[in-house]
Design a protein around this nucleic acid. Sequence first.
DNA 1: CAATCTATTGGGAATGTTCCCATATTCCTT
DNA 2: AAGGAATATGGGAACATTCCCAATAGATTG
Lengths: 347, 347
Amino acid sequence: MKSKYISIIDIAKQLHISKSTVSRALTGHPSVHPETRSRVLELAQKLDYQRNPLALGLARNNTNIIGILVPEIMSTYFPSVIIGAQEVLHEAGYNAIICHNNESYNAEVLNTKLLLSYHVDGIIVSHTKETRNFDHFQMIQRRGIPLVFFNRTSDELNVPHVVVDDYEAAFRAVEHLIKIGRRRIAHLAGPDSLINTKLRQQGYLDALKKHKIPVDPDLVISYDLTLEKVRIYIKHFLELPQPPDALFTINDPTAIAAMEVIRQKGLSIPDDIAVVGFSNDLSARLVSPGLTTVAQPTFEIGREAARLLLQDITSTVKNDYSVKKAPSVMLKTKLIIRESTVMKQGK
Amino acid sequence: MKSKYISIIDIAKQLHISKSTVSRALTGHPSVHPETRSRVLELAQKLDYQRNPLALGLARNNTNIIGILVPEIMSTYFPSVIIGAQEVLHEAGYNAIICHNNESYNAEVLNTKLLLSYHVDGIIVSHTKETRNFDHFQMIQRRGIPLVFFNRTSDELNVPHVVVDDYEAAFRAVEHLIKIGRRRIAHLAGPDSLINTKLRQQGYLDALKKHKIPVDPDLVISYDLTLEKVRIYIKHFLELPQPPDALFTINDPTAIAAMEVIRQKGLSIPDDIAVVGFSNDLSARLVSPGLTTVAQPTFEIGREAARLLLQDITSTVKNDYSVKKAPSVMLKTKLIIRESTVMKQGK
DNA sequence: CAATCTATTGGGAATGTTCCCATATTCCTT
DNA sequence: AAGGAATATGGGAACATTCCCAATAGATTG
C-alpha cells in the first residue's frame, strides 16, 4: 500500500516534470516558469498537498521546531507564558514542542535530550526547583543551539534571559505592607535553588531596612514549594510570642494556602494579618478576600523570550556567550492591591 | 562544517563496520554478534548518540508522535488531562505535540493540518465550542489516522471517545440541591454546540421531573462560555419576580463568576442561593464559600484516551469505524459537597 | 554567425534511518 | 565430506525534501 500522504514526487509525476521543479515552484524559487509554477500550485492545492516538515528538517538540518521546557502547567503562570511565546513563534513560522516535568530534575534532563534528538532549532527554559546542576543546559549551548531562560535563571550560566524585577517587586510589595502600618512582616520564601527567591528575599530585607524596621530571623522561612507544608510554617509564625501582622509569600498558591490556615485559626484577614502573594494567578482574584499580589506580564514574558531566541536563531553571526555577555530583558511588574491587605471602601 | 549531531554512520566509520550493522546493534536485532553489539553500544554511549526520530519517521513512516488538540490550557482541566495522557504515551514510547486554539474553530482546523503534516501517528481531541463542522476530523479518519475524542464529542462522527456520565452527574448535582430543600433551581447552561451541555441539561430536567418540580423556562439559559456575560444572566435570574434559590452552572468558572455577582447583590450563599458548578477546578476549593461541584477524573480521562488511541495504532487489523461502532469509555464522576450548598458544621 | 549569456529544467547527492536481499563464514548433520 | 542451515555482515533502496551542478534551449551580442 502506498503512503497515505502525497508527496512532491506525486505532483511531479502527474505533471510530467521533475521533483526539483516542483520543489522550486512550491518554495517560490525565482527561476521557474510562471506557467509551470501556477500548474504546480494548482495541483498542490487540489491534492491538498502538505510539505513534510520532517523531511525538510532532514534535508536542511533545521527543523523550525522550538522546544519549550517548563516545570509545570497546572498554574496559570506557565501556560500563559507559553501562549505568548507561541504567538511570536507561529508568526515567524516556527512550531513548539511543550515539555513539562512536574518539577523533577531527572525528567528535565530527559526532556532536554528528547528535544535535542528532535533537532529543535532552539529551546526556551524555566528550570525546575530541584535544578542545581546546569550541565545539560551548558551542553546545549556548547552545541551551538540557541537557548533562552525565563523566570528562573542561573548566575552560573551566561544565557539570554527574560525576567521581571523580582527585587523591586518584592521591595514595593513589602513597602505597601509597611505603609498600611504593619511592622512585623513575615516572609515565607521559596527554595534557595531559585534565583527569584534570593532576589525577592533581598527586596523584603531592604524594604524593612529602608523603613528602619529590625529584621527578625524568626519571621523568615525558606521552603520547597510543597504546598502541604505551608500549614506547618504558618502555624509556627502564628504561635510565636510576637506573631506577625503581615505575611509576604513567594507565590500565590502559597499565599492562598496560608490564608486558609490563618482563617482556620480564627484570625481575620487583613485586620489581624495582611497577606501579599506573587504572580497574580487567576485564583488570586477568586479567593475571598481577594489576594494582593504582584502581577507579572506573563504573555509578554513569553513573547520576549521567543523574540530573544529567534534573534539568536536567525542572526548570521553566531553569538558566542562564552565570550560575550548574553542579552537580558527585564519586564515591569505591577502591585495589585486587593482586600487581603486593604479593606474595600464601603464595607 | 559537519552537523553538530553524530549519526549512525559516524559510529560505523569509527568501528569500520557498516551502518546496517550499527543500526541492528542499536535496535536490538538478534542477528548481530554479541561482541559487535557491545562495541557499538559502548561507542554510542561514549559519543552520547541519540537516534534522530525525524529520520526514523521518514524511513518507517511512523513517527511515534501523537497530537493532542485542546481548546485551551488556562483552566486546570485540560492540562491535567494532558498530563494523564502523556503518562501513558511516554510509557509506550510516544511523544506528544500539544496544540491549543483558544476555542477558535479556524485555529483548530489549522492545527489539525499542522499535526497531519508532521505525520503524527494519532490525534487526541477535545474540540472548540465553535466547532459545528467536523469535516477536518472526518478527513483524519478517512486517511486512516487513529483519532480519539474526549470530553467534547460528537453524535455525527463515530469516533472512539472517553467521557464522563454528564447526564448522571448533572442529575445527581441537581438532586443534591433538591434534597437540601431547594425548589427554584436555575441552570446556566453552555452552548448547544457542545454535547455535554445537552446531556447536563437533560440531567437537570429529569432530576426536577423525578421530584415533581415544574420546569420554569425562565430559569434555564444557554450561553457561550464568555465569562463577561455571566453578570447579565445572573442579574436576569435575580430580578425575576420569583428569583431562584439555587443555581447549577455548566462549569466552575461560570459558577465562580456567578457567586461574585450574587455576593455583590448582597445575597448570601448558600442561604439565599445555593450554587453548584462542574469539573472541580482547582479554584473551586479556593473560593469562599467553597464551591460544591462535580469532580471529573481528569488524569484518568487522559490515560484512557491515550490507551484507546494506542489500541487503534498498534492493532494489526485496522478498525473501520465507517462500519464498526467505535469504542467508548465512560468514567465515573463524584459530587464534591462544599459550603456553597451546605454550611459547614459548627459554623 | 558564432559565441556567450540567461532562463528553465532535470539529475543526483545528501540528510539519518530502516529493512530487504545478497553474501560470506561457520557449524551441523547424515 | 558435502550440502544445508544458521549466523553475521554489507550494500543499497526507500522515505521526502533541498540544493548544487549540469544541460538544453532560446536570446543577445560582438
